[in-house]
C-alpha cells in the first residue's frame, strides 16, 4: 500500500517538477492575494499585522483550491484515472498518493506565503514551533480535503467553478483554528495556541478517516 501511494505521489511530483504549475502560477497568485489585502486595508500596518495570521490561511486556502483542481485536471485528461485503476492501483492508494503530493505542494506554497508575510507585513514570530506545527497540520488538512473534493468532481463539467464552493465551507474549521494558532504565534493574541493546533490535528485525523472510507465509492468506477 505504502509503495502504491509513493508511486502516485512521485508521479504527481514529477509532473509538477516538469510543468512547475505550483511554483510559476499558484505561488505568485497566493502572494498576489497578500498584496491585494494590503490594498483592501489601505496598507495600514496595525490592521495588517493584526490580520496577518488569518491572511496567511486565506491565501493558503486559495492556493490549495487551485492546487487540488490542478491535481485532478491532470487525471481527467485522456482518462488517466482509468489507466491508474486498470494498472491495479487501489482507490485509496490513488487518493492518498495525490493527497500527499498536494500536501507537499501546499507546504511549499505555505512557506512562500509565510515569507511574504514576514517581508510585506513586517510581522515578528514569537513562537516558531507553533507556526511550524499549526502550519503542517493545517496545510495537510487542506490537502486531504482538496484531494477528496477533487476526486469527487473529477471529469465533471464546470468542476472549476464548483470546487471552491464545495471546498471552502468544509475547510472553514481549519481556517478558523489555523488563524487563532497563528495569531498566538505572531503575538497578536493571547489565546491557547496549542489547543487550536490540537484541534487542527483532530480535524486532520478526522478527514483522513473520512477519506479512507470515501476513496472506494469515489474512485472505484469513476
Amino acid at each position: 500500500m505504502l509503495r502504491e501511494i509513493w508511486i502516485v505521489c512521485r508521479k504527481d511530483l514529477t509532473i509538477e517538477w516538469r510543468a512547475r504549475v505550483t511554483l510559476v502560477q499558484i505561488v505568485p497568485t497566493v502572494l498576489l492575494v497578500l498584496v491585494v489585502f494590503a490594498f483592501a486595508f489601505d496598507a495600514n500596518p496595525t490592521l495588517l499585522g493584526a490580520g496577518a495570521g488569518g491572511l496567511f490561511w486565506v491565501a493558503v486556502l486559495f492556493g490549495a483550491v487551485l492546487g487540488s483542481k490542478r491535481s485532478f485536471d491532470i487525471e481527467a485528461e485522456g482518462g488517466n484515472l482509468d489507466a491508474l485503476r486498470l494498472g491495479g492501483l487501489a482507490p485509496a492508494a490513488i487518493l492518498w498518493g495525490k493527497a500527499t503530493a498536494l500536501a507537499l505542494q501546499s507546504m511549499v506554497v505555505g512557506v512562500f506565503a509565510a515569507a511574504g508575510l514576514l517581508v510585506l507585513f513586517s510581522v515578528t514570530v514569537e513562537d516558531w514551533l507553533l507556526i511550524v506545527a499549526a502550519g503542517l497540520c493545517g496545510t495537510a488538512a487542506f490537502a486531504v480535503c482538496g484531494a477528496l473534493y477533487g476526486a469527487m468532481t473529477v471529469g465533471l463539467r464546470s468542476a472549476d467553478t464548483l470546487l471552491p464552493l464545495l471546498l471552502i465551507p468544509v475547510a472553514a474549521p481549519v481556517l478558523l483554528a489555523g488563524t487563532r494558532a497563528f495569531d498566538v504565534a505572531l503575538g497578536t493574541s493571547a489565546d491557547q495556541g496549542w489547543s487550536w493546533t490540537a484541534l487542527l490535528a483532530v480535524v486532520l485525523v478526522t478527514y483522513i478517516a473520512v477519506g479512507w472510507l470515501a476513496a472506494g465509492p469515489l474512485l472505484e468506477d469513476a
Partner: peptide, 13 residues
C-alpha cells in the same frame, strides 16, 4: 462528509 463535518464546524465556531 457534510454530516461528519458539521460537529467539527459547530465545535470550532
Amino acid at each position: 462528509i457534510a454530516v461528519v463535518n458539521l460537529p467539527i464546524v459547530h465545535f470550532s465556531v
